[in-house]
Simulated assay, not measured.
Amino acid sequence: MANIKSQKKRVLTNEKSRMANKALKSEVRKAVKKAKIAKAEDAANKVELINEAVRLLDKSQSKGVFKPNKVAREKSRLMAA
């Protein structure tokens, strides 16, 4: 554990951001998985799920959770499917 007051604060801040990033990553993974396994017959629902996944991917990239290339790759794979 840190001895310096500012480092103690930093440890707490880092833990908060780690948990927020973890939650957003989990949400993105769930959305991408739902979009991938959506039924082909229900095209309108599949498009809606893909749009939601793309929105979450963009949001996570802007917050620095995922790198731009990973987001582009995931979006490309969703669109190809």
Rank of each mutant, 00 (worst) to 15 (best):
M1L: 08
M1H: 07
A2Q: 04
N3R: 05
N3T: 13
K5H: 05
K5C: 04
S6H: 06
S6E: 06
Q7V: 15
Q7N: 13
K8E: 05
K8V: 05
K9H: 12
R10S: 14
R10N: 15
R10M: 15
T13M: 13
T13C: 13
N14V: 01
N14W: 01
E15Q: 06
K16W: 11
K16T: 11
K16S: 10
S17I: 14
S17Y: 14
R18C: 00
R18F: 10
M19V: 13
A20G: 07
A20W: 14
A20S: 11
A20H: 14
N21W: 14
K22P: 03
K22E: 04
A23T: 12
A23F: 08
A23M: 09
L24A: 13
L24P: 13
K25I: 00
E27N: 13
E27F: 06
E27W: 01
E27G: 09
V28N: 12
V28G: 15
R29V: 05
R29P: 08
K30D: 01
K30C: 02
K30V: 06
K30N: 02
V32F: 01
V32E: 00
V32G: 00
K33A: 11
K33F: 15
K34H: 00
K34G: 00
A35T: 08
A35D: 03
A35M: 07
A35I: 09
K36V: 12
K36M: 14
I37S: 12
I37F: 12
I37L: 13
A38H: 07
A38I: 05
K39T: 02
E41F: 09
D42T: 02
D42M: 07
A43E: 01
A43W: 00
A44Q: 10
A44W: 01
N45S: 05
N45H: 08
K46G: 01
K46T: 03
V47C: 02
L49E: 02
L49C: 07
I50G: 04
I50P: 02
I50L: 09
N51A: 15
E52I: 00
E52C: 04
A53D: 04
A53M: 11
A53Y: 06
V54P: 04
V54R: 10
V54C: 05
V54D: 05
R55F: 11
L56V: 13
L56E: 12
L57T: 03
L57Q: 05
L57H: 04
K59F: 12
K59M: 11
K59P: 08
S60N: 05
S60V: 04
S60I: 01
Q61F: 14
Q61Y: 12
Q61S: 09
Q61G: 07
S62T: 05
K63L: 15
G64Q: 05
G64P: 07
V65G: 09
F66K: 03
K67Q: 14
K67F: 11
N69E: 09
N69T: 01
N69Q: 09
K70G: 03
V71C: 03
V71A: 02
V71E: 04
R73E: 14
E74M: 13
E74R: 10
K75L: 10
K75T: 04
S76I: 06
S76R: 15
S76C: 06
S76K: 14
R77F: 10
R77I: 14
R77Q: 15
L78P: 03
M79W: 01
M79C: 00
M79P: 01
M79S: 07
M79E: 10
M79L: 11
A80D: 08
A81N: 13
A81E: 09
A81L: 15
A81S: 12
A81D: 08
